[in-house]
Each structure stands twice: as C-alpha cells, then as structure tokens.
Amino acid sequence: MAKSGTIKPDDFSEEISAQRLKSSLWYTIITVLILSCFLVPLQDGNLSFMFSLMMWVTLATGINFIAGFTGYMPFGYVAFYGIGTYVTAILVKVLGVSEYLAVPAAGLSGILLALLFAPTLRLNGIFFAIVSLSLAVVCQRLMSLLPEEITGGSHGLNLGVATDRTHGYYAMLIIMFVALVSASWLGQSRLGKALKAIRDDPDAADAMGIHVSRVRLYAWIMSAFFAALAGGAQAWFTGALDPITAFDVLITAKTVIYAMAGGLGTIIGPVVGTVTLVWIDEIVWQQFPVLNNFLLGLIITLLILFMPRGVVGSLMQHFPHLRKYIM
C-alpha cells in the first residue's frame, strides 16, 4: 500500500516540463528524418528508396491513429491507399487536373470512403478485421470492373512522362510532415487521451461520458486521410498503377508490421519501427529476393509471440523510468 502522499505545489509545472522533455526528443527525431529526406534529391541519392521510406512512415503513423489509439485493426487499410492512387491518377490522366490539386482531392476521397465505411466500426474485434479486408477486395474488384476509359480496367493506368518524380517526392515529404505533426498533436491532446481510454475499455469510457462512436470516427477519418494522401503521392511519384498492386493486402500487412514492431499506441513507435524495418527490408531484399516474404512472415510471427507491444512499447512496459522520455 502506498503511503499517504502529499501533493507538491509545483506538481503541474513539473508535469509540463516532463511533457517538454518528451516532445523535444520527438521533434529532434522528426527533424533529422525530414532534413535527411529533404536533402536526398539534391545530392542524387537513392530517390526511390527514400520515397518508399517516407510512404511507409506516413502509412504506419496513419494506421496508428486507428489501430494504436482505438484498438481496431483495419485489415483493409489498403483500400484508402488504393482509392488515393486511383483518384489522383484519374484526375490527372482523364480530367487533366494538376497533381497539386489531385493529391489533396485524393485525401478528400479517403475521408469520404472512411465515412462510407464508418458503419463497420460498430463491429468489434475479428468481425471488423474480416469485413474491412473484404471491403478492400470489393474496392479492388470494382476498379477492374469499371469502364477502361476511366480506371483502365485490370491493366490500370499509366501517367507516363506527364508527372515529375521530384515534385511527387516533395509532396510525399510534406504529407509525412503533416502526418507526424498530427501524431504529436494527438499524443498530447484530450482527444488522444479519450481514444486511448476507448482502446482499453470502450464500455467504461462510454459510461464516463465519452461519445465513443464519434471520437472513434475522428481517428478513423484521420487514418484514412493520410493513407489516401500517401496513395496519391505514390501515383504521382511512380506514374503507374494497377488494381492488383494498388489494393495489395501486403501493403496493409507491411504497414501493420512496421507500426507494430515499433509499438502501436506510442507516437515514436511506428516511426522507429518503420525506419528500422524498411532499412532491413532493403538489405534483405538485395541479398535474398526469394526469401524476402518468408522473413517478413517470420518477423511478424516472432513479434506477435514475443513482443506484442513492439520495441518501444516493451521498453516502456519493463523500464518505467523510460516513460518520461517516450511519447
């Protein structure tokens, strides 16, 4: 039993400085990340690799809003990404809209799709996962069924030389920056606290006056928004897409793994997890192309069995004093 404590008068200011310490560490990390991504095109670096790194960071941060903060595992997360790529490509190729408008429009389409899928949030646990996965498959089939003049059918669309890779690259950088800033805001806001309460016990949060379905919808929309933006930037950068790769379940899987490896529910976790694993993935890919997916599967299995809260989450669980530094 804890002995009767006395409240220190400056308790709140101590708390504020603790918050500052947390955020300064976090902002250092994202500044380094953003600066290094910013400099790559200027120095003729590996543009494709850095682009995919930024894309995965954005996706992992995005899925963290719904999976980490509310405990819902959207196995069809790729649906939002896919819709983002398609909306961008159709706007650019078919309607001749500038990419600078097409990508934000893709983000909006992600929000619309999230609202359309919002009723699925009534389902819990495994039902939600299965339905979400099915919805992604429905989207994929729908894209290949639509008239070829619009979606290009099962062959997809090719934007060709119409797009500028470097511009797409910087668009992704801006999207990642906004995603990371949103994440840090959420980590400290009351909305974030409400979401975490819902994740741990939705019924109790409801009984405490939290409007569970509305608050959860905010997280869902944020999640979808960033995935759609990332998809849009991807279409801009690569200039080609087809239904199979745009709605590939592996995209959801990798997103989940990267976010989970770092630690869902923390702000730093998904970033750390993604940067580490994308580097490892790059190295492994070059060495053992055949075994790549096998190792990916092995990493998921080991993570789930031995470190379900990820690297950052486990550190925080076992070393309580680290909680002071980690957001």
Partner: peptide, 11 residues
C-alpha cells in the same frame, strides 16, 4: 474496468 495501458492521472 480501468484503462490499463494509460497512467493513473490520465485514467
């Protein structure tokens, strides 16, 4: 029914 993964103050 407590919120197990957040600290007491946030709870």
């Amino acid at each position: 029914r407590i919120f197990k993964r957040i600290n007491l103050i946030d709870n």
